[in-house]
């Protein structure tokens, strides 16, 4: 049959076409062949569009990596690899070391992650298992999602005017220098900002746990907490971890809110209450007035380092997820 040879993509319709073919006059049959031919063509075009879009993402990421590398060459030439562990960032003397900012970025992000995990997992379990439906559940769900929608500069202002005085009071109570702003304040702000990512993903994952498994456990006499601990969490751990990874990515790259509360000093932070700086924040602060080639290039190299840090952390995360799923 003619239609068959053209129609390999739409196999589902073949029996129906065959039935129709018996009865339809020749002219209608031609029309139908034409139509299905167009159909296939549209199908192919659609596939190509999707493919191009996916490929474009690849091209953009490759382009970013390439641009960052090419632009970093002057600084790479002038400073070499010592850039990574150099402790001094002195634009006047043209000496640049990224270590304080690398440390600041990792410190704020991981601290934020540690603070946020109990909250995001708690919300995920509460909404996924305990109160999956109803107006109260919806209210919480929407509120959590709203947290992700607030622009980061708003968090920065809120942090500077509300959170920082509270942290300062706390710091003077525990006896450290009461700056208020610093690594700890930024980590607090960041932890609030990243809660929705792990929480939403975790909620979806927990809702996808097959009910047979849970019902089986209940029928054996397990309590709700036991079901949570022995059925739901083991089943969803790779998904929960993926959500955490997403939060971490957000924390690493956050700029505006951090720069407003971190204290922006190039000195290596002595404790988590000391002021510091992150890579993204340094770039945002100094890029506009970087007036020498090596200076500008050193800032771009900072971007490259941030890019690589993100890639490495993602790769490690993927490996961990894979190991989770295997056992």
């Amino acid at each position: 049959m003619e239609t068959n040879s053209n129609n390999s993509a739409i196999t589902r319709k073949q029996p129906m076409l065959r039935v129709i073919n018996i009865k339809t006059p020749e002219i209608l049959k031609l029309k139908r062949i034409k139509r299905s031919y167009r159909h296939i063509k549209a199908e192919n075009v659609f596939r190509r569009v999707l493919f191009t879009m996916a490929l474009l993402m690849l091209v953009i990421v490759a382009g970013i990596a390439l641009t960052l590398t090419v632009e970093s060459i002057p600084s790479l030439k002038a400073l070499g690899v010592s850039y990574l562990w150099g402790k001094v960032w002195d634009p006047v003397a043209d000496v640049y070391g990224a270590f304080p900012f690398l440390l600041g970025t990792l410190l704020t992000s991981f601290l934020a992650l540690i603070i946020s995990i109990p909250f995001s997992f708690g919300i995920a379990i509460f909404l996924g298992e305990y109160y999956p439906k109803g107006w109260f559940s919806n209210l919480i769900k929407n509120t959590v999602e709203l947290i992700a929608a607030v622009p980061s500069v708003i968090y920065g202002f809120w942090g500077l005017f509300v959170l920082v005085p509270i942290v300062r009071a706390f710091e003077s109570k525990i006896g450290v220098t009461p700056y208020g702003i610093g690594i700890f304040s930024s980590a607090l702000i960041l932890s609030i900002m990243i809660i929705p990512y792990a929480a939403s993903m975790g909620r979806e994952m927990i809702r996808m746990v097959p009910s047979q498994l849970k019902e089986g456990a209940y029928s054996l006499g397990a309590t709700r907490y036991e079901v949570m601990r022995s059925i739901v969490l083991p089943y969803t751990k790779s998904g929960l971890f993926a959500g955490v990874l997403l939060s971490l990515g957000r924390a690493l790259g956050e700029t505006m809110a951090v720069t407003m509360v971190i204290g922006n000093t190039s000195l290596i932070p002595k404790s988590i209450f000391a002021p510091g700086n992150t890579m993204a924040s340094v770039i945002a602060n100094e890029f506009t007035e970087a007036d020498r080639t090596v200076y500008l290039s050193a800032l771009i190299e900072l971007g490259l380092v941030l890019f690589l840090v993100t890639v490495v952390i993602n790769m490690i995360g993927k490996r961990i997820i894979k190991r989770f799923t295997n056992d």
Binding site: V92, N264, S266
Partner: peptide, 17 residues
């Protein structure tokens, strides 16, 4: 110790944007 410029390496203090 520090020098002049539109960004310098501050020996002490907090930075505000």
């Amino acid at each position: 110790k520090v020098g002049k410029g539109s960004s310098v390496n501050w020996p002490v203090g907090l930075g505000g944007k």
